[in-house]
């Protein structure tokens, strides 16, 4: 008769001021238990200093089929990378 607990996505901020990073998911009845469980499942070895959880059903994601239209335009814009430009050695560090 039990209904399955909802799925939560877990994000952890590591020790050194980095962004929260997706580490996996888990089931829990509510946000508080999801954070408690995330502590035990994903930070047993000091992996983090902060936890975010969000219900998986609340995440909107781009579709794999949109990969081309979404990301290919950036391929043609190599000038966005600093290495595109040749700076003469004489100009010094830039």
């Amino acid at each position: 008769m039990s209904s399955e607990w909802p799925l939560w996505e877990v994000f952890i901020r590591g020790q050194h001021g980095l962004n929260h990073r997706h580490v996996g998911s888990l089931h829990a009845p509510d946000a508080e238990m999801a954070i408690n469980n995330a502590r035990d499942v994903y930070t047993r070895r000091n992996e983090g200093v902060s936890i975010w959880v969000v219900r998986s059903s609340d995440i909107a994601a781009s579709a794999p089929s949109e990969k081309g239209p979404l990301f290919e335009p950036a391929n043609a814009k190599v000038y966005r990378h600093p290495t595109f430009f040749d700076i003469p050695d004489e100009a010094g560090h830039m």
Binding site: M1, S2, S3, W5, P29, D30, M33
Partner: peptide, 16 residues
């Protein structure tokens, strides 16, 4: 563990 899982679910639904 079924009663415990059900209890937490009921609590979460009530809080929501």
């Amino acid at each position: 563990g079924a009663w415990f899982r059900d209890g937490l679910t009921a609590h979460a639904e009530k809080a929501a």
